[in-house]
Lab assay of single mutants.
Amino acid sequence: MDPFVVLVLCLSCLLLLSIWRQSSGRGKLPPGPTPLPVIGNILQIDIKDVSKSLTNLSKIYGPVFTLYFGLERMVVLHGYEVVKEALIDLGEEFSGRGHFPLAERANRGFGIVFSNGKRWKEIRRFSLMTLRNFGMGKRSIEDRVQEEARCLVEELRKTKASPCDPTFILGCAPCNVICSIIFQKRFDYKDQQFLNLMEKLNENIRIVSTPWIQICNNFPTIIDYFPGTHNKLLKNLAFMESDILEKVKEHQESMDINNPRDFIDCFLIKMEKEKQNQQSEFTIENLVITAADLLGAGTETTSTTLRYALLLLLKHPEVTAKVQEEIERVIGRNRSPCMQDRGHMPYTDAVVHEVQRYIDLIPTSLPHAVTCDVKFRNYLIPKGTTILTSLTSVLHDNKEFPNPEMFDPRHFLDEGGNFKKSNYFMPFSAGKRICVGEGLARMELFLFLTFILQNFNLKSLIDPKDLDTTPVVNGFASVPPFYQLCFIPV
């Protein structure tokens, strides 16, 4: 058959498939802009700032609406009420993970971030239990974070109060905490193996944040037939998995079943207990991918939040002064901060919360999916439909947070200066898919920041009023603009 005829037939089939998918069930789905064949609503979305586009569309179609990214149908949730109703009140029905062709290629359905069903539930339950087990290797997770915080302070001392970009050092600290939990080992910041790991993690975040990856996920045929950065992403992930597998083999040879040292040991012990169960989800494949998931999810998000926190503290020296006064009063100079201190430091706690609220790190979270046909607000959402959640619409709700575009710790303080919780605080998402490392991340943010401010004054290279804190939105995360500062020993 003539190649031209084959091409026309293929394009015609794709067009018909697109029209059929977009028209099927439209009477039951939430409203939304009319999609174009094949490309859907992509032309109506700013790929570099999806969150802003969703906010604009919500003003037209309401808090629940339908979009098509290519052939992929998505239902968008915008605003606290619908997000709570879906992710919390109907948590089980909305607990699936959205379709990610690239991740599915890399992870093969294993791990904790992109798995679904029984596998996801069992691996998540085990990971939560293990991360909360403060007795691994007779050292609590808090001990590990405190140790890394001391190392971080010593690295900052080496800058000798000269101007520096904190990106690298602030990236090393949370990565080392995860390494300590998974591998029972922290690395020197100049260790070549550690630097290679950091390089792969950072490069992957840069790649994932590009519009090209959005295109690959919406048109998965590209993955096999086109060159691009997605190939580098898959190569980096394969490198990390190979490295983790080597460490798993080392653990198998040296493990003491009665004295687990780290996450890998705990997983291997669980595998041993379930070795007679042919349906067990505790396999080497799941261990390797879960460890890679924890490394990827637990490094860049925390380091970016820390980097943004220091920029905001530079911009608002009056806030920094209040935090340091609270540190001096509650902790002093002669001991290290600990998590028990947080309950006695409402202002510092409010500042950490406000940093996370203000920066809105992951504006749309990772997409969910419905696990069955769901009736939601008089609409029928078919099983498997991807759910896109606007966390921006919750964290920047102007009824809950007056002047949401302003950095103001009073958003989390009552009139008496006591810490005030808010149900709208969802930087880790909400419901059954809430970030498994939430507790660890909150511990790291509090301890790293208090250790830094206990030991250093922060000095800006320019007038604080002239510092730009506008986030650089890159399609996946909101990151701070480049800046330098000086760490002046107190």
Rank of each mutant, 00 (worst) to 15 (best):
D2I: 08
L9Y: 10
C10L: 13
C10Q: 00
C10S: 15
C13G: 14
C13M: 15
L16Y: 11
L16M: 14
L16R: 01
S18P: 08
Q22K: 10
S24Y: 11
G25Q: 11
G25V: 15
R26K: 14
G27V: 14
K28N: 15
L29H: 07
L29A: 07
P31H: 07
I39W: 06
I39T: 04
I45N: 04
I45T: 04
I47G: 10
K48Q: 13
N56A: 15
N56S: 12
L57S: 03
S58F: 05
Y61Q: 01
G62Q: 00
P63R: 04
L67A: 06
Y68N: 13
M74Q: 06
V75G: 00
V76N: 00
E81P: 10
E81M: 07
V82D: 03
K84P: 03
A86K: 00
L87P: 02
I88T: 06
L90T: 08
L90Q: 15
G91H: 09
E92D: 15
E92I: 07
E93H: 11
F94Y: 04
R97K: 03
G98Y: 04
G98D: 03
F100P: 05
A103S: 09
E104D: 11
A106Q: 09
N107M: 09
G111K: 03
S115L: 02
G117V: 03
G117N: 11
K118D: 10
K118R: 12
W120G: 04
I123P: 01
I123T: 11
R124V: 00
R124Q: 05
F126M: 07
L131V: 07
N133F: 06
F134D: 14
G137Y: 10
G137N: 09
I141H: 11
I141S: 06
E142G: 07
D143I: 08
D143Y: 09
R144S: 09
R144T: 13
Q146N: 10
C151D: 07
V153T: 08
V153K: 02
V153P: 01
E154W: 07
L156N: 01
L156V: 07
K158S: 11
K160F: 09
K160S: 11
S162D: 15
P163V: 09
P163A: 13
F168K: 13
I169E: 06
I169H: 09
P174M: 15
C175K: 03
V177M: 05
C179P: 01
Q184C: 12
Q184A: 14
K185C: 10
K185I: 07
F187M: 11
F187K: 06
D188A: 11
Y189T: 06
Y189A: 05
Y189D: 03
K190S: 15
K190T: 13
D191T: 06
Q192R: 09
Q193C: 11
Q193I: 11
F194A: 07
K200F: 03
L201K: 04
E203F: 05
E203G: 07
I205H: 15
R206V: 08
I207C: 07
S209T: 12
P211M: 11
P211E: 06
I213A: 11
I213C: 11
Q214M: 07
C216H: 05
I222K: 04
D224F: 06
F226G: 06
N231I: 11
K232G: 06
L234E: 05
F239A: 15
M240H: 04
M240P: 01
E241G: 10
S242F: 06
E246R: 12
K247D: 07
V248L: 06
V248A: 06
K249W: 09
K249F: 09
K249G: 08
D256C: 07
D256F: 04
N258R: 12
R261L: 04
C266F: 11
C266I: 10
F267E: 01
F267M: 05
L268K: 01
K270M: 11
E272H: 11
E272G: 14
K273N: 11
K273W: 06
K273S: 14
E274K: 07
E274H: 09
K275Y: 08
Q276E: 14
Q276S: 14
N277E: 11
E281M: 12
F282N: 02
T283N: 11
I284H: 08
E285P: 12
E285K: 08
I289C: 14
T290C: 10
A291N: 05
D293L: 03
G296L: 14
G298L: 02
T299Y: 13
E300V: 13
T301G: 13
T302V: 13
T302P: 11
S303F: 04
T305F: 03
L306I: 10
R307Y: 07
Y308W: 14
A309E: 01
L311A: 06
L312W: 02
L313M: 11
L314G: 08
P317W: 05
T320F: 06
T320S: 10
K322V: 09
E326T: 01
I327R: 00
R333C: 10
S336I: 12
P337W: 01
P337C: 05
C338E: 12
C338Y: 06
M339I: 10
D341H: 09
G343C: 14
Y347L: 05
Y347K: 00
T348D: 01
T348H: 01
A350D: 00
A350E: 00
A350N: 00
A350L: 01
V351L: 09
V351Y: 05
V352Q: 01
V352E: 00
Q356R: 02
D360V: 06
D360F: 01
T364K: 06
L366W: 06
H368S: 02
A369Q: 13
T371G: 06
C372T: 15
D373S: 05
L380G: 06
I381R: 00
K383F: 07
G384L: 01
G384Q: 05
T385A: 04
T386Y: 06
I387Q: 00
I387L: 03
I387A: 03
L388S: 01
T389H: 04
T389P: 12
L395I: 05
N398Q: 08
K399G: 14
F401A: 00
F407Y: 05
F407C: 00
F407H: 00
F407G: 00
F407Q: 00
D408S: 07
P409C: 04
P409D: 00
F412A: 00
F412H: 02
L413H: 04
E415H: 09
E415K: 12
G416A: 14
G417C: 07
N418S: 09
F419A: 04
K420Q: 12
K421G: 11
R433M: 05
R433T: 03
R433A: 03
V436G: 05
E438Y: 10
E438D: 10
L440S: 03
M443H: 12
E444I: 04
L447V: 10
F448L: 05
L449E: 03
L453D: 03
N455P: 00
K459E: 15
S460Y: 05
L461D: 15
I462A: 12
D466E: 14
T469V: 11
G475V: 11
P480A: 12
P481A: 08
Q484V: 06
F487S: 04
V490P: 08
